[in-house]
Simulated assay, not measured.
Amino acid sequence: MPAQGATDRASRRSARSAHPGDRKNAASGPLKDARSGLGIREMPRLITMQREEMTMPIKSSKELFVRMLSDARHHAERATKIYEELGQATQDPAIQEALQSRAFIQEKTVKSLDRCFQLIGEKPIASNGRLQEVFLEDFRRELAEIQAPAAKALFILIKANHLMHLRIAEYVALVAMADVSGHFGVGVLLESCLADKMAFTERTRRLIRRTIESKHAVKLAA
């Protein structure tokens, strides 16, 4: 009995020494965990809502056309700087002149695309343009690893041709969409832009061949 009495007194002292806030926190622990779990479960929905706010959903073929046309205009503006940078990276005067001329022609492309927007009664929308930023980042990194001037010139031409083929695919789709939608005037303007790009790829092909055959070019293994 004395032992039992001592145990009871110790239990009462322990209960009195416990802070009221501790009991409250202990009681609210499961509820807090439940709320945390709810927040985690809600996270995908919140992320989806944020994405919907940041991006404009495309609900029709016309909206898709406006989006693609806006992307093409943004690419044309950005390409001016890209071709200028490509031209500055080479020591070959012929390649510099060709790339600088390509940058100059981009202004004509932008004006043609602005006219397209006028004909369809729309305005350009915001465009990401991350693809071209990645292209430039990769170009700078890879170019820095090349030492021989002739190899650098060849690499620059190949990258310029690569970029132009991406744009050609873009304009082929735009021309087809303009024709299907009945905007034949828009199709004429887009097809002229496409013709410029195809002519540049042919000119670039000739420069690549000239660079390889030049006495200063990299000797390829037979």
Rank of each mutant, 00 (worst) to 15 (best):
R205Q: 08
E133N: 14
A76Y: 02
P20K: 02
H19G: 02
K159R: 14
A217D: 02
A27G: 10
L136Y: 10
H75S: 15
L166C: 07
Y171E: 07
L99H: 01
A18R: 15
T80V: 09
V180F: 02
Q132V: 11
A18G: 10
Q88A: 09
P44A: 05
A173F: 08
T80M: 09
H183P: 06
I212F: 01
P57Q: 05
A176K: 13
R12N: 09
L157C: 05
A79F: 15
R78H: 13
A148W: 04
S214C: 03
R141Q: 09
K197V: 07
R35G: 11
R205F: 05
E52D: 10
V180M: 02
R73T: 07
A126T: 13
I158Q: 13
D71I: 13
I95L: 04
S127H: 11
V186G: 00
S61R: 11
L31Q: 10
N25K: 10
I212Q: 06
F104C: 06
G29M: 05
T80Y: 06
S101M: 06
E122R: 01
E53Y: 15
R35H: 12
R140Y: 13
S11F: 06
E77F: 06
E53G: 15
G5F: 12
K215G: 10
D8W: 05
M68A: 02
S192W: 07
F184I: 08
Q88G: 08
V186Q: 01
A26T: 09
A72R: 00
I208L: 07
C193Q: 04
V134P: 07
S101A: 08
I208Q: 06
L154Y: 11
T7Q: 15
K197W: 03
V186K: 00
C116F: 00
I95H: 00
L143Q: 00
A6C: 04
E84S: 10
R16N: 05
S14L: 12
A150R: 06
S112Q: 05
D179Y: 12
A6E: 10
H74K: 11
S61F: 11
G5H: 14
I168D: 00
I146E: 03
N161T: 11
N161L: 04
A10S: 03
M43C: 10
L131I: 13
R67N: 05
N128Q: 09
A217T: 04
P124G: 06
E77Q: 09
M177D: 11
T80L: 07
